Simulated assay, not measured.
Amino acid sequence: MDSTGSELPTSAWKSEEELIEALQRQEDDAYEYLVRAYSGRMLVVAKRFLGQDQDAQDAVQDAFLSAFKAIENFEGNAKLSTWLHRIVVNACLMKLRTKKRKPEKPVEDLLPHFVSDGHRDRAEPSWAITFDTAVQSRETRDLVRQKIEELPESYRTVLLLRDIEQLSTEETAARLDMSVSAVKTRLHRARQALKTLLDPHMNGGY
C-alpha cells in the first residue's frame, strides 16, 4: 500500500531493479507504472508544501519530468520512492521560490513573550501529551497540519522538511541554501510558533 492508504498498481517487474532498468531503457509501460504507483504519495507531499491542488499537481508533474530526465544516471543507492521523494520536495521548493508570496503574519506574534524578570508574561498552558507526540500522533495529525499551514512560509518550510519529511538539519540547510545554525534557529522558532497555535486545542487534552 502507498502512503495514502490505497493499493499500488500491480507491477509487471519482479523487482525494483528490473523496473529501474526498464525506465532506463525508456519503456513506456515502465513510465506509466511509475506515475500510477507514485503520483498519489508525491501529491500528498506537494500539498504539504504548496497547499493549493493546482500548485501541488504542477510540482508533481515537474518532479516526474525531472525524474524521467535523471533516471538514466540513477544508480540505485537509495530506494526509488526515496529518490522520487527528494525530487518532488525540490520541485516544491523551486515553486515556492518563484511564486508570488502573500503577506504573512509576523512569526513574532506567535512566539512566547517575556517580562523584564525573564519569565513568560502568561502561564504556559499544560498539555495532556507532549509537543513531539502531538506532531506525530494520528489523532491530532489533521489539526497539526492545519496549524502548520498558518505558519509564515519560511518557518513552515523548515518545519516541514525537518519534522514531517524527516530530513536532517544538514540536508535541510543544503536544500534551502542556509547555514546549519540558521536552520536550527528557524526550526526552534517554528516549533514555538506552532505550539502557540496548538495551545488552545491542547489545553487539558484533545
Rank of each mutant, 00 (worst) to 15 (best):
D58E: 15
Q136T: 01
L110V: 04
A70W: 00
S116V: 12
P152Y: 02
E72R: 15
K147G: 00
D117K: 10
S6I: 08
K147D: 00
T157A: 01
R138D: 14
P103C: 13
L93W: 11
G51N: 10
H113T: 12
W13D: 10
R162T: 15
M178R: 13
H113I: 06
V44K: 09
T196A: 05
V88T: 10
Y155D: 02
E150H: 05
R145A: 14
L19W: 10
G40F: 01
K47R: 15
S137R: 11
K184E: 15
L43M: 11
S81P: 06
D142S: 02
T133M: 07
E153H: 06
Q24A: 10
A22L: 07
R189T: 01
A193Q: 02
L160F: 10
Q166G: 01
S137V: 03
D2Y: 07
T133I: 05
R189L: 04
T130V: 04
R145K: 13
Q52L: 06
E7F: 14
A134C: 09
E124W: 14
D55N: 11
V107N: 05
S126Y: 11
L96G: 14
V35M: 10
M94H: 12
P106Y: 07
F74M: 09
K47A: 12
Q26A: 13
Q52G: 02
Q61F: 08
E170L: 05
T10R: 06
E108H: 04
K79Q: 14
L198H: 01
L110A: 07
W127R: 06
V60R: 13
D163V: 01
